[in-house]
Design a protein around this nucleic acid. Structure first.
Lengths: 333, 333
DNA sequence: TTGTAAGCGTTATCAA
DNA sequence: TTGATAACGCTTACAA
């Protein structure tokens, strides 16, 4: 494998000059520049970035840590991240933890071991103190599901208000007995959304009944099962607010299997506006997050920390909106 | 930021010894080892892997290049890759090209610039000659959608036979006029599947009509639109074989909107056994690929090349199977 | 404009 | 068992 030294020898010049040519330094004569380019062309030389990165203490790589790629939700966010990172001259690498702390540790270490310049994380299973220490010392930004105790920069929506808005909409639609299918993983947002759910009931003067909050994994089957419980309990619900679209899809199916009509007999609202909510039959009303913006802003926040690790940590809250579809009787067939 | 030199000074020893301790060299006295560990603990020292990687010419990182993360299909494959890579002491990084050649080039270069030890690619938009040269010189394995001219190792299913099996099943179910919704991106597998479709018709003595092959993007909307064309053309089809589940979902919806019953009036088969095919209403019969095995085998093939870049290139073909669901009248409600 | 040489943080060779 | 030091491939003062 050719190194810069070989190129210098073949082009009859010094490694410094070759380096200058590679890095577009204008202070190289046209003749020499051409000679070097020719040799690079001939030999197919590619600089070793490990050597470069060591010397410059920069990798121009960002790492995005996702809990789970199966979640449609992250696709559009990632596009925003890549777009903005590209503007800043950074490449984006992604890793998936599958909610495993050991794996997460390995990837978090990539910023400590200088293999990436910063990290954007969408979920952490680590304890707060560890993350706090990390965020204090290395560029680290949280998105969507921040651990507030970490005191890092973060970007997210107002989950409490989002839930409040969704449930309030169900109430406006005339549904009186509203259940919620929450989750068991993302406790921060789940708690916030449960709070919003209760506040909406309270504001409307509806009674809260703890039986009406169920908890599902983020999959279709448990969404189906928990909705079934809500529909078959002593005081059945007539509407369901779910913390995820796939769970809402399971719920809709349960409604159908009970001989009820989604959006008429039973209203259903999901969360995240994933393509499933759009394509499911019937289509599912859902709370949409500004995914692209979440991505670009996460990068901006990270850049601030990369440029100055002591930059003040910012929390940025972005607006959400509801997408109205058949499962609440909107957007008729 | 502490470096190995600092640790050596604080522990009153040499950098060589610290390096030995870090790397678990047994030839270090217990006393010294403890002293070094204590200092590492106190200081929170983390070795700089860029320095290490430069010295050892190894990164113990693999890069997986995906065309598009929105595709559910890759999630399980990625798990297989991560599992097997873990066994081999490698971390897995992922990048998404969005089918953009420029972006793909940037990520492919990571193996040339020595930032990763090898690459597994699920789709390439580059021209064959470039990929051939890359695969000759660096560890590079193709999965699912190989460019055969690249002469790299690869792992995939037999797409021709998979399509043949799917269409033959529709014929066995009694459908006589079978359409196909192919795609416009993954030409290798699409061509193979179109060939399999035609061979199945031929084998059954059914006439092939070019009007019966439509081409959709890999999304719901065009699946819906193309199926609509198949159902409304002069000689309407009574069954549809689609190269992707999401397209099949659109097709199913179109069938419903024509007042027809999927799995009875019109049979539909999708491809990839993504969760959508399982959860869609009605559920969708589909061709399943051995996703987990595709992942582990891709890693094995890559390791062979990492250990010896001149190792012979292997093509591995894995079995597929059909998952029977409602859209072909199986697996009754 | 060009070249020499130090240095990035590590590992590994060699000698002690 | 330990330590001194060269080397990995590159960038960047500094000197010429």
């Amino acid at each position: 494998m050719n190194k810069i030294k070989d190129i210098a020898r073949l082009a009859n010049t010094s490694v410094a000059t070759v380096s200058r040519v590679i890095n577009g330094d204008p202070n190289v004569s046209e003749a020499l520049k051409k000679r070097v380019y020719d040799v690079i062309e001939e030999t197919g030389y590619v600089p070793n970035f490990v050597g470069r990165n060591l010397r410059t203490s920069k990798s121009y790589k960002l790492l995005v840590i996702l809990p789970d790629i199966a979640n449609q939700f992250y696709s559009e966010i990632l596009k925003g991240i890549e777009e903005q990172a590209g503007h800043c001259g950074y490449d984006v690498l992604t890793s998936i933890t599958h909610l495993n702390t050991e794996i997460e540790t390995r990837y978090l270490d990539m910023v400590k071991t200088r293999q990436v310049d910063g990290i954007i994380s969408f979920y952490t299973a680590m304890d707060s103190e560890k993350i706090r220490e990390l965020a204090r010392t290395y560029p680290y930004v949280q998105a969507c599901e921040p651990d507030m105790a970490a005191e890092s920069s973060y970007v997210m929506i107002d989950n409490e208000k989002a839930a409040y808005d969704a449930v309030t909409y169900l109430i406006e639609k005339g549904y009186q007995s509203i259940g919620m299918i929450s989750g068991t993983f993302y406790r921060n947002s789940e708690n916030a959304r449960e709070t919003g759910y209760r506040r909406a009931l309270q504001t409307a003067g509806l009674a809260f009944c703890s039986d009406n909050i169920k908890h599902a994994s983020y999959d279709y089957a448990t969404g189906y099962a928990e909705c079934t419980r809500l529909l078959e309990q002593k005081e059945p619900v007539t509407a369901v607010f779910s913390v995820s679209d796939v769970v809402a899809a399971g719920a809709v199916r349960s409604v159908l299997d009970h001989g009820l009509v989604p959006g008429k007999d039973v209203g259903v609202i999901g969360f995240d506006n994933t393509s499933l909510s759009e394509t499911y039959n019937p289509s599912i009303t859902t709370v949409a997050q500004p995914r692209h913006d979440i991505g670009t802003i996460a990068v901006d926040l990270l850049m601030e920390k990369i440029n100055d690790i002591h930059a003040i940590s910012k929390g940025i809250v972005l607006p959400h909106h509801i997408v109205y579809r058949q499962s609440t009787g909107d957007c008729a067939e």
